[in-house]
Amino acid sequence: MKINTINYYEENASTLVERYESADVNNVQNLLLKTFDINSKLLEIGCGSGRDTLFMIKSNYNVIAIDGSKNMIEEAKKIHPELKERLFHKILPNDLEFDNKFDGIYSISTLMHLSKDALRKTLSKVYNLLNQNGKFLMSVSLFRDDIDKDGFDNKGRFFLSLSFEEWIKICEEVGFSIVKTKRNKDGLDRSGIEWLTLVLEK
């Protein structure tokens, strides 16, 4: 993940955690419940405030989670102390290493911060971390009107701009089958931002 992007999350962790906790994520959380079987062993990539990690644990899933920002991890542990032993600092794509495999993996609003090359590497590692027939749910921004021609917003964060077809193609090239695609509006009611959620299977 690009340094400027991580720095933004490091410097604004407490404000961002508050914002993420207030976002309307009912659609995504309902989709998580429909995607993964109860009691599945799950990995969340880019846990932010820990909001979805806690939701899934309370819904009877066994979840551990990672984030590229140390400060976001610390803030998440403050507001959700019950997650203390479940949150880990790892930076994509190189740190995405585990000794065990998972029944499912999900990533909300994270992978679009990667370059195309880093995205490919990350998706390939995700594929290898899944048990056979394991599912991967990812939600990424499909369109943003607040980035420049190089993909940066005014906060210095990078966003990968790919078309719907390009997101599908890169996932299929890694080996995933497409189970479900869904486009939706922004959970923080920002106009000019559209999201794409994909459910993939190994």
Rank of each mutant, 00 (worst) to 15 (best):
M1R: 04
I6P: 11
Y8T: 04
A13K: 02
T15H: 06
S22Q: 14
N26F: 01
N27T: 01
N27R: 09
L33T: 14
K34H: 08
T35R: 10
F36Y: 12
N39P: 09
L43W: 04
K58F: 12
S59Q: 12
Y61K: 08
V63W: 03
I73H: 14
K90R: 12
I91M: 01
D95H: 07
L96R: 02
E97M: 00
E97K: 05
D99G: 10
N100R: 00
K101E: 12
Y106M: 02
S109K: 02
L114W: 06
D117E: 13
L123E: 01
S124Y: 07
S124C: 07
L129F: 09
L130M: 09
V140Y: 04
F143R: 02
D150C: 01
G151T: 06
D153L: 11
K155Q: 15
K155L: 13
G156Q: 04
F158K: 02
F159N: 01
F159M: 06
S161E: 09
S161M: 11
E165A: 15
I168S: 04
C171S: 10
E173G: 08
F176E: 05
F176P: 01
I178A: 11
I178E: 10
K180Q: 09
L188G: 00
R190S: 03
S191D: 15
E194K: 02
E194M: 02
L196F: 13
V199G: 13
L200F: 12
E201T: 10
